[in-house]
Structure formats: C-alpha cells, structure tokens
Amino acid sequence: MDTTLIIGIAGILASAGPIVFAAIGETIIERAGVINLSVNGAILLTAMAGFAVGVSTGSVLLGMLAGALIGALVALIVAFASITLKQSQVAVGFVLALLCRDLAYFLGNPYMGLSGPRLPHLPIPGLADIPVLGTIFFQHDLMTYMSFVLIVLAYVYIFRTRPGLMLQGIGERPAAAYVRGANVNLLRYVYTVIGGALIGLAGPMYSLSVKAGWKGTISGLDGIGWIALALTIFGGWNPLRAALGAYFFAFLQWLGLVLQPSLPNIPSQVLQVAPFPLMILTLLLVNIGNAEWVDRTLAGLPERTRHALARVLRAMRTSPPAALGMPFEKE
C-alpha cells in the first residue's frame, strides 16, 4: 500500500478520536433518557481549560483531568435542571452550549497562541513494527488508543452486561426499570455525569493533541459538538455505529484537505463544511423510515417491491430510546 495513504488512514483514526469520545459520551447520556445539547460548548470550554491547565502545570494528564471534570460539571447542571428542577432539557442544554462557548473565548483570551505540552506518541513495542497495520493502529498517543478501547467497552457494557441492560431500561421504560428496583433518577444523574466526563475529554484531546494549542475563535472547533450530537442519532444510540460515523466524518474532512490543491477555485472554508450537508443526508436516510407518508406510500406498492423497500428502510432506520427527554416521576 501507498505510504501516504497509510499515514492518511492513521491520521483519520487519530483525528476522529475526540469525536468518538464525544459521540459515545452523548450516546450513554441519551440511552439513560436525557438529552444533553451542551456538547458544542462543553468541547470548546474543556479544550481551552485543558490547554490552560496543561500550559500552567506542564502536565498533559492534569489537562485531560481538568477537561473531564469540567465536562462532568456541565453535564451535572443539565441533569440538575432537567431531572430535579424539571426544566426543558433542550433549553438548558442550548443555553449551556452558548454560555460555555463564550466562557471559553473570554477566559481563553490570555492563552491564545501560546505553545503548550502535547500528548506524547506511544508506539506500542512490537506491534508498531508490523507493516501497514502497525502504522495505522499502533503508533498513536494514549488517548487515541483509549478511543479504540472506549468503543468496545461502551458497546459491551450497554448490550452485554446487566447494568447496561438497566441503562437501556431507564431510557426505554423508566417505570418498568423502577419496578425492577432501579433508582431511575439517580442512575440518570450518574450516566449523565459519566457521559459528560467523556465529552469533556474530547476538548483537551484537541487542544493537547489533534489540534494542539488554543487559538480562540479560529481554533476550528466550533461545530464539532453539533456533529457529535448528529452522530449520536446517526449511530442509532449504538456506540459502534456512532464511532463509524465519527471515522466517516474525519475521512470527509481529510478528503477536503487532500482535494484542496486540485480545486483552487473553492475556498478552504467551503470544503471544511462539506461534511455537514452529507450529515443531513445521512440523518434523512436513517429517519425517513419513521415518517408517516413513507408507510402510506409503501402500502400502495406491489408486494415484492414493498417488501424489498421496507427491508432497506428498516436496515437504515434508527429510533430513539422511548423515554428520551421525558422526566420520570414515581407514582
């Protein structure tokens, strides 16, 4: 295989890492029945805070930790406002998305353009030397490896363990989970905070590795959080599919960079947003099976075509946890 291509693939895996973290964090939160719209602001705020802590202490690990803590705190506000105070989750999340973004730009002002520490490269001895595969998978930094682990871990936890089953339960049928002895609201708090911490790691993964540094409004991170939210839906609240979406998104961004020289008439900003319309298109594909008119149209078609089309739609279609966004009250 061509070396530039191999390095390209390795780069895509690394640059998708933060999005994998954010999308899986949000997947866990929404699986528990809570919508957390603050992701975009949380990523910016934790990117800035992680970088600031990294610069002041010289420690990347403390920077990552600061990100996780702040991410957890932001999610805690969403949980408190929506679970305890029964306010609109969408409203609180949206306000936090804007507030955290402005906080990041305001507090990050003195750190703009400084040089800070970076996550060190950790080629895995032995495995890193395997031709092709070694370069693609085993010459990354710690957090990129963690993103691989997280995908598997989250998938196994949600679909293959008892607590994971309960997590699905509190998002699908909280009343049934409650009867089974689950403290629904407490669990929702816990999963929201855990998911928030994962989202909070995405920020420093950018500012301490993938897009090292803090450059304020031109850091190029504004919008990533919204993509992570879209990937949660696109992934059908399944960590595996969400991660695939993240890699696809990173691939499109890489493609934009590669194609840039051959398309000199198109400003780079345009190619950078090319993934967004594609994202809408994929959202359309996974959602269209839920629309009423599709059912009606299908019913009018000859049987064989109908079956074939219905199967295709069902394969693409995803539907949210049944109690997503709904507060739970016992009684």
């Binding site: 719209l37 969408v90 919204w226 939210l229 879209a230 839906i233 967004f276 319309p277 994202m279 809408i280 959202l283 359309l284 959602n287 269209i288 099976g289 839920n290 629309a291 008119w293």
Partner: peptide, 12 residues
C-alpha cells in the same frame, strides 16, 4: 417529510 429533527436540520 423526512423525520429529521428541526434542531439538526437547522444546524446543518
């Protein structure tokens, strides 16, 4: 007609 939530359609 597409069942795409207006938040994501709008953001895109």
């Amino acid at each position: 007609y597409g069942g795409v939530n207006e938040i994501f359609g709008g953001l895109g």
